[in-house]
Amino acid sequence: MRKYLAVAAVMTCAFAAPAAAEDLEFLLVNNSSSTLTGFYASAASSEHWEENLLEGRILASGYEVTVTIADGLTTCIYDLRGVFQDGDVLEDLALDLCELGEYTFTD
């Protein structure tokens, strides 16, 4: 089954305001039919994926979690990668997470 991505824009001040020391927070929602086992965010200028932001946890279908990117960078533009229990891997590139505030995976 192929997963499709949906990005929901919400008020920046609600979810994506940088926390402290350039940390970036946003809401990650899994509305797909498969469990999210890995979630990676790297600055769009990077050639490599950073560590798994779920940190050994999973995000089951129908759940959401606040994700913090604490890389110390001043950018808002990130590439995102989701790895699912059913084997699907999805990438979405050059997203402005400061503007979005929320990112949703759907079928």
Rank of each mutant, 00 (worst) to 15 (best):
V7P: 00
G82H: 01
A17C: 04
L54I: 07
E99F: 15
V65D: 07
A21F: 13
L53H: 13
S45A: 09
Y63H: 14
G72T: 03
V67K: 05
C13Q: 15
V29H: 14
L100S: 08
G56M: 02
E102I: 10
R2Y: 03
V89N: 07
S61R: 02
T37R: 15
L95D: 09
C13P: 12
L27W: 00
H48W: 12
E64D: 09
L90E: 00
I58H: 05
D23M: 07
T37P: 05
L93Y: 13
Y103C: 10
E22Q: 15
T106A: 05
T35N: 13
E99Q: 12
A70N: 15
V83Y: 03
D86M: 03
N52L: 02
D71A: 08
E22L: 11
P18Y: 06
D88W: 10
L5W: 06
A19L: 07
I69Q: 01
A9T: 10
S46W: 00
L28P: 12
A20E: 11
W49D: 06
T75E: 04
D107E: 14
V83G: 01
E55P: 00
L24Q: 07
T66E: 15
L54M: 11
G101D: 01
D71N: 08
D79G: 01
G82Y: 07
L93C: 10
I77L: 08
E64T: 02
E25Q: 15
M11C: 10
L90A: 00
C76D: 15
G101H: 10
T66D: 15
S42C: 11
N31G: 06
G87N: 07
V10N: 11
E99D: 11
T104E: 05
G56C: 01
E22W: 12
A20S: 12
A14P: 01
T12N: 04
L53K: 14
A60C: 02
A44N: 14
Q85G: 01
G62S: 11
S42H: 07
F15C: 09
D86L: 01
L93P: 03
V29L: 09
K3W: 00
A21N: 15
A6F: 08
F105H: 03
V89E: 06
A94L: 08
Y4D: 08
S33N: 13
K3D: 05
D96E: 12
S34T: 11
L24C: 05
N31I: 00
G62C: 06
D107V: 08
L90P: 01
V7I: 13
V7M: 12
A44D: 13
R81F: 07
S34V: 04
L27A: 15
C98Q: 13
S42P: 04
N30M: 13
R2D: 07
T104H: 13
L73Y: 01
L36I: 09
D23W: 04
T75C: 01
L27C: 07
S45Y: 01
F105S: 04
D88K: 09
M11W: 07
A70S: 09
V65G: 02
T35Q: 14
D92E: 15
T74R: 09
E102K: 14
Y63R: 13
Y63F: 12
F15P: 05
S45D: 02
Y63M: 10
G56D: 06
L90I: 06
M1Q: 04
A19G: 04
A16E: 02
G38S: 10
A41F: 02
L36C: 14
